[in-house]
Computed example of a mutant assay.
Amino acid sequence: MHPFQFHTTPGLIVKAGVTARLAALAGSLLGPRILLVTDPGILHLGLHAAALADLEAAGHKIAAFAEVEADPSRDTLLKAVALGRDAGVTGVLGFGGGSSLDVAKLAALLLGSSEDLDRAWGVGLAKGPRLPLVLVPTTAGTGSEVTPVAIITVGEGEKRGVSSTVILPDLAVLDADLTLSLPPAVTAATGIDAMVHAIEAYSSANANNNPLSRMLAMQALDLLSANIETAVFDGSDKDARQAMLLGSLLAGQAFANSPVAAVHALAYPLGGLFHIPHGLSNALVLPQVMRFTLPSAAPDYAALAPAFDVSLADVADETSRAEAFIDALAALSARLGLPQRLRDAGVPESALPQLAADAMKQTRLLVNNPRPVTEADALAIYTAAW
């Protein structure tokens, strides 16, 4: 066994309805003045209302920042930091999807240390300290509540990431009640996103690919595949919703330590240039990236296949089982009603060379792919997905 490191969020609470008692669970950690980071949709639905009422009843002052957009920009992050600084906050509460949680992570970092953001981009460069941080996901996809990564859009659609254990939160709270109103399309896309995390973590070429991540990825894929269709087509099923949240978290723990690769590298430009939601971006390129990577990852894909669909264990040949797994993933995406081609998501064919060029900037991800990806390879993958 080769040496490895494994880091994750130290505190986890998994219980439906638990955010209504957030003051008792996290109030002392967050302190008297809390920066809430969320998005307009959460504000409109009032998903945060019970948590905020509980915190305010316990005497906490809330500075609410509810301007986080999909693929959040640097300007959005800096606005949240400015609000938190003006309010003299003592802790940060991230409440929402991956975008809100990513902004919350970096807001906690910048408020706690006044660190230079431009020196923090990359792996292991953010030093901290940060303010106390609690994250409450409202989608079952990103696993951001247990990852040391935050992604921000800078410039003309370019995405940059901070990857550092410093921004792992102190506590993650998984409350299935918060996901019951999630629309079917969002449930589907974020669920596929979580599956991608599990698949890429298990097969990652990163030197820190490790037995714990592989175990978590396998369990995550089992939970997600068994519950995603119920969650999409019967969104009121609380057990399925809680299982999806847990599956997303386990996949997040896996890829936080055995990082993702080319699927994400090719998905990011779709979000940056065309504002396609991250989960859908992953779903659109997943089958083609896996088919490209198959010659170098067949044993891993074959090992994962029965966790996705137990009947695939009957396919004796390793390569055939891996191919059947890829086909089954594509079929699931279609059953869930997600767009199947880049053209279906509004991407013009003329944009494919720019997408390929932008994907090459994601060096921290591409290095983890079992099969190296050149710009010509990326263009061929996008073309096949178009």
Rank of each mutant, 00 (worst) to 15 (best):
residue 262 A to F: 04
residue 262 A to I: 02
residue 262 A to V: 01
residue 263 V to T: 11
residue 263 V to S: 04
residue 263 V to G: 04
residue 264 H to T: 02
residue 264 H to I: 03
residue 264 H to M: 11
residue 264 H to R: 11
residue 265 A to T: 02
residue 265 A to F: 08
residue 265 A to H: 01
residue 265 A to E: 01
residue 265 A to L: 12
residue 266 L to P: 00
residue 266 L to D: 00
residue 266 L to H: 01
residue 266 L to K: 01
residue 266 L to R: 00
residue 267 A to P: 08
residue 267 A to D: 07
residue 267 A to Q: 05
residue 267 A to N: 06
residue 267 A to T: 04
residue 268 Y to T: 04
residue 268 Y to Q: 09
residue 268 Y to V: 07
residue 268 Y to F: 13
residue 268 Y to S: 01
residue 269 P to E: 05
residue 269 P to R: 06
residue 270 L to G: 01
residue 270 L to P: 00
residue 270 L to T: 03
residue 271 G to I: 02
residue 271 G to P: 05
residue 271 G to R: 03
residue 272 G to N: 11
residue 272 G to C: 11
residue 273 L to I: 14
residue 274 F to S: 05
residue 275 H to Y: 08
residue 275 H to E: 15
residue 275 H to M: 06
residue 275 H to C: 07
residue 275 H to I: 07
residue 275 H to L: 13
residue 276 I to V: 15
residue 276 I to E: 01
residue 276 I to D: 01
residue 277 P to Q: 09
residue 277 P to V: 12
residue 277 P to K: 03
residue 278 H to I: 10
residue 278 H to A: 02
residue 278 H to N: 06
residue 279 G to P: 00
residue 279 G to C: 08
residue 279 G to F: 01
residue 279 G to T: 11
residue 280 L to P: 00
residue 280 L to H: 00
residue 280 L to N: 00
residue 281 S to T: 04
residue 281 S to P: 03
residue 281 S to I: 03
residue 281 S to G: 15
residue 281 S to C: 14
residue 281 S to E: 01
residue 282 N to F: 03
residue 282 N to A: 02
residue 282 N to D: 14
residue 284 L to Y: 05
residue 284 L to E: 06
residue 284 L to G: 07
residue 284 L to D: 03
residue 284 L to K: 05
residue 284 L to N: 04
residue 284 L to C: 09
residue 284 L to W: 03
residue 285 V to M: 11
residue 286 L to G: 03
residue 286 L to D: 03
residue 287 P to M: 13
residue 288 Q to T: 11
residue 288 Q to W: 12
residue 288 Q to F: 14
residue 289 V to N: 03
residue 289 V to F: 05
residue 290 M to K: 00
residue 290 M to D: 02
residue 290 M to G: 00
residue 291 R to Q: 14
residue 291 R to H: 10
residue 291 R to W: 12
residue 291 R to S: 09
residue 291 R to L: 12
residue 291 R to T: 10
residue 291 R to I: 07
residue 292 F to M: 08
residue 292 F to K: 03
residue 292 F to R: 01
residue 292 F to E: 02
residue 293 T to Q: 12
residue 293 T to K: 04
residue 293 T to I: 10
residue 294 L to W: 13
residue 294 L to H: 10
residue 294 L to I: 13
residue 294 L to F: 13
residue 294 L to P: 11
residue 294 L to A: 11
residue 294 L to C: 13
residue 295 P to L: 13
residue 295 P to C: 13
residue 296 S to M: 14
residue 297 A to L: 08
residue 297 A to W: 00
residue 297 A to M: 13
residue 298 A to N: 11
residue 298 A to Q: 08
residue 298 A to I: 10
residue 299 P to G: 14
residue 299 P to M: 14
residue 300 D to V: 00
residue 300 D to I: 01
residue 300 D to H: 15
residue 300 D to L: 03
residue 300 D to K: 11
residue 300 D to W: 08
residue 301 Y to P: 09
